[in-house]
């Protein structure tokens, strides 16, 4: 007897789970960027934002748990699917070259892993109490503005952040369109708009997120 399959046993099902979790993460990336762009509005606004988040533990922890679950689902599906597809071509070609795919599409697993490593570093840098990687005094007094300025005064830290945003950018450049196709939302009448929209959004996220770590060295935030 062959085992009955559930939705998540099929490659399409796994892909849908990946798209759903990817969408949650994408949504967070946008929210996180908008939240932090408030740094340009000055210490008062930015610190109030930080305190407001801290004082809403239900929201904060709700989002954190949702993100953790999304990450776990996304990564588990990525690992399972890429193992399946590696096994699907045990003997490769001598001459075959990809004709139309993009660099971003071919490197999704690598950009994903880089994003994961970066997220771990980023959490250690700003969130986990007492770790403070990047050598500065970690204040937990609610002065997130100073944390921001201190954190991004160190050039190697800034360089690392910018590089990570490039990896994230490549990931969501392909991911944003890919998820529409996975959900079956693709339609010839709307494709150009959807395609353009998804990629513009990915670009906006990258530019916004690169601006943040660079802002201190550029003298935009002091």
């Amino acid at each position: 007897m062959i085992k009955a399959l559930s939705f998540s046993d099929t490659t399409i099902g796994k892909k849908v789970l990946m798209a759903v979790s990817g969408l949650v993460l994408f949504g967070f990336v946008i929210g996180h960027m908008l939240g932090n762009l408030q740094v340009f509005l000055g210490p008062k606004v930015y610190n109030d934002y930080g305190v407001a988040l801290r004082d809403a533990p239900l929201l904060l922890w709700g989002v954190r748990i949702l993100l953790l679950v999304s990450f776990l689902v996304h990564i588990a599906m990525a690992m399972q699917l890429s193992a399946l597809s590696r096994a699907a071509r045990p003997v490769g070609y001598k001459m075959r070259k990809d004709a139309i795919t993009t660099f971003a599409a071919r490197t999704m697993l690598y950009s994903g892993v880089l994003v994961l490593l970066f997220v771990l570093y980023h959490l250690a840098h700003f969130t986990f109490p007492g770790v403070a990687m990047g050598a500065y005094e970690h204040s937990h007094t609610g002065d997130v503005y100073s944390n921001f300025v201190n954190g991004f005064s160190i050039p190697w830290v800034v360089a690392l952040y910018v590089a990570a945003q490039v990896a994230l950018g490549l990931h969501i450049y392909h991911g944003a369109w890919s998820l529409l196709q996975t959900f079956g939302l693709n339609n010839p009448l709307r494709n150009a708009t959807l395609h353009g929209g998804a990629r513009t959004l990915a670009l906006v996220v990258v530019v916004g997120n690169i601006l943040l770590p660079l802002s201190v060295l550029l003298g935009l935030v002091q």
């Binding site: 490659t11 071509r89 990809d98 004709a99 071919r106 196709q181």
Partner: peptide, 27 residues
């Protein structure tokens, strides 16, 4: 068989111009 990661190499290679739009429909 493997899974789809939207490279669209299939459509490029297809001698009959089958569109990846059908993959969206399949999903």
């Amino acid at each position: 068989f493997g899974h789809c990661t939207n490279h669209y190499e299939c459509m490029e290679a297809c001698p009959k111009h089958i569109s990846v739009e059908f993959i969206a429909q399949l999903n």
